[in-house]
Design a protein around this nucleic acid. Structure first.
Lengths: 104, 104
DNA sequence: GGCTATACCTAGCCATACTAGGTGTCAAGG
DNA sequence: CCTTGACACCTAGTATGGCTAGGTATAGCC
């Protein structure tokens, strides 16, 4: 996977894996790996800043939990995040159709 | 079309529109617009540097023509460019499948 | 003469995925 | 016990590349 390809698409992917249920950051990385069949093995330095960005923009909200001394930051979609996910899916479909048309 | 989305995909698109026949730079812009149904209206500042990059990397080669005082730089695929196009199509299919899997 | 479309170019901006480093907890093995 | 690995978080700095905004010049029409 070429890094540049992913630009502009990561945020939608993160929103998508958080749609069923809230997850903590590290679990988001694993969920992306799992749901992509191992294709998306993203480094922490990619995902953590993205989560912070999405929270800053009001699409995610987070809570700290401390189960037995281990601190985790659990992220969930806000209302705006959920509607933004719809927009992102739409935008992806349109984008993919455009690229398909030119490349085919 | 969000600019960031296109990153890492433009080169393949340019190779694709040049596959049937060589074109000059400005015509590449119009071909992209046409083949995308108007979706890809890319500014010259995006396409010209990309063409130079592709030529520098040996995927395109260019010739200057001067029909009636108007200078045009006509780009065509090299052998490496043609095989690279195959790779790019393959890589796009794989990428799109991955995003679809996560986003769906 | 001025306007539009054609046709080329480049310096600098900016968003963002990634690298490379850091901190700390916990469980398993030698 | 103590090292190793997985877990879990963080951030400063880098590199990439599409885009903005500016420039040059020709052709054709009103």
């Amino acid at each position: 996977m070429e890094p540049e390809q992913l630009k502009g698409h990561l945020d939608g992917l993160i929103l998508a894996v958080l749609a069923p249920a809230p997850l903590h950051g590290y679990a988001v990385i694993e969920a992306l790996k799992l749901r992509s069949g191992g294709e998306l093995a993203l480094p922490e330095g990619t995902v953590y800043p993205a989560l912070h960005r999405l929270e800053r923009d009001g699409l995610l909200e987070s809570d700290w939990t401390a189960d037995s001394g281990r601190r985790r930051r659990v992220y969930g979609l806000t209302a705006r995040g959920r509607s933004e996910l719809g927009l992102r899916r739409e935008r992806w479909r349109s984008f993919a159709a455009t690229i398909d048309a030119v490349l085919a």
